[in-house]
């Protein structure tokens, strides 16, 4: 029975921005807003979704899209509202997961370098799924631009992810690292 409150940083404010340099190139980490996330599973879900399907290293569009997670699972980002449960007609399992994730934007010329601190994720190695481990945490990692990435973690692990990202950024640019709320 111990009070360990002081051992753990309080959750970061959603407005936090990390900036720094990775191998001499600028990089910025901030929280990203996604207003609806819907987890959909079904044996034909990869081909049946009307939304553009994003794997690695495809670049996600600004509008709604679907992330490819598994052979039989996608995550719709900012797609239409759907009812939770088993869709008998389409044979799809549907769960609202909007509050289940926390997304970070990592952008700038040094962004890929920061990702390389946490995973062997290379543009030359495509993958049908955006789900992978980064910094030892399960995440969805996809591109939103030429040098812009989205890292989506489970809500419960967002603080751990933030801490990993800020520590990695601090140690690849000891002088120019900044953290501001």
């Amino acid at each position: 029975m111990r009070d360990d409150t002081h051992k753990w940083d309080a959750p970061f404010p959603a407005s936090s921005v990390l900036t720094g340099e990775v191998d001499g190139k600028a990089c910025r980490v901030s929280s990203a807003n996604m207003h609806r996330l819907t987890l959909i599973s079904g044996s034909g879900v990869q081909t049946s979704s009307e939304l553009p399907l994003i794997g690695w290293p495809e670049i996600a569009p600004d509008g709604p899209f679907a992330l490819s997670l598994r052979r039989d699972r996608i995550l719709e980002v900012n797609g239409p509202a759907r009812t939770d449960g088993w869709d008998e007609l389409k044979s799809l399992a549907i769960s609202d997961m909007t509050d289940g994730y926390h997304a970070f934007s990592v952008d700038g010329p040094g962004a890929l370098g920061l990702l390389h601190r946490g995973a062997d994720v290379f543009a030359e190695t495509p993958s049908a799924s955006v789900a992978r481990l980064i910094f030892g945490l399960p995440a969805l990692v996809y591109r939103t631009g030429e040098t812009a990435f989205s890292l989506v973690f489970t809500r419960a692990q967002a603080v751990a992810a933030y801490s990993a990202l800020s520590t990695a950024l601090r140690h690849c640019a000891p002088v120019r690292f900044k953290e501001r709320p």
């Binding site: 598994r70 062997d120 190695t125 993958s127 049908a128 799924s129 992978r132 481990l133 030892g136």
Partner: peptide, 12 residues
């Protein structure tokens, strides 16, 4: 190699 995802690190 994952049959769906392709080559990935052993830790996964």
């Amino acid at each position: 190699p994952c049959p769906f995802c392709g080559p990935r690190s052993e830790g996964e």
